[in-house]
Design a protein around this nucleic acid. Structure first.
Length: 117
DNA sequence: TGCTTGACAGAAG
DNA sequence: CCTTCTGCCAAGC
């Protein structure tokens, strides 16, 4: 497992993008996950910001549900008001402070592995 | 080559 | 709760 002390080679950067796309495409409807989690699952724990960059520049053709990715506090991406609307249409709950209710809607691997809720 | 920018995270005030 | 600061690191200029 690589960590923040290692630099990405162009090949690893390609693999990272592919992993990010794969992971995001698997987020279930009605759930959200975080940049940091995606980065960690891709094998680069300290590259949460790269995930954001990757999604920002992701091609339309990838048809990724990138609106299901929020930061750890449940805040939606700045400058993208539509994201909240899209999530609410899927049933994602928002708290009074405008953040996603992470307790209830955060996608965890356990949900897949154990088949719970 | 060096400085600035973020769809981030976490701590501090 | 909100703002600011630090750490992070590929990209842009």
């Amino acid at each position: 497992m690589k960590d923040y002390r290692d630099r990405m080679t162009s090949e690893e950067a390609r693999a990272f993008r592919d992993d990010v796309h794969n992971i995001v495409s698997q987020i279930p409807r009605g759930y959200v996950t975080t940049y940091g989690d995606i980065a960690a699952l891709a094998g680069w724990p300290s590259h949460s910001r790269m995930v954001g960059r990757t999604l920002r520049y992701a091609p339309e053709s990838a048809e990724l549900p990138c609106h299901r990715v929020v930061n750890k506090e449940g805040r939606t991406a700045p400058g993208w008001a539509m994201q909240r609307v899209m999530l609410e249409n899927e049933g994602v709950r928002f708290k009074a402070n405008g953040h996603v209710d992470m307790e209830r809607c955060k996608w965890r691997l356990e949900i897949i592995l154990k088949g719970e809720k």
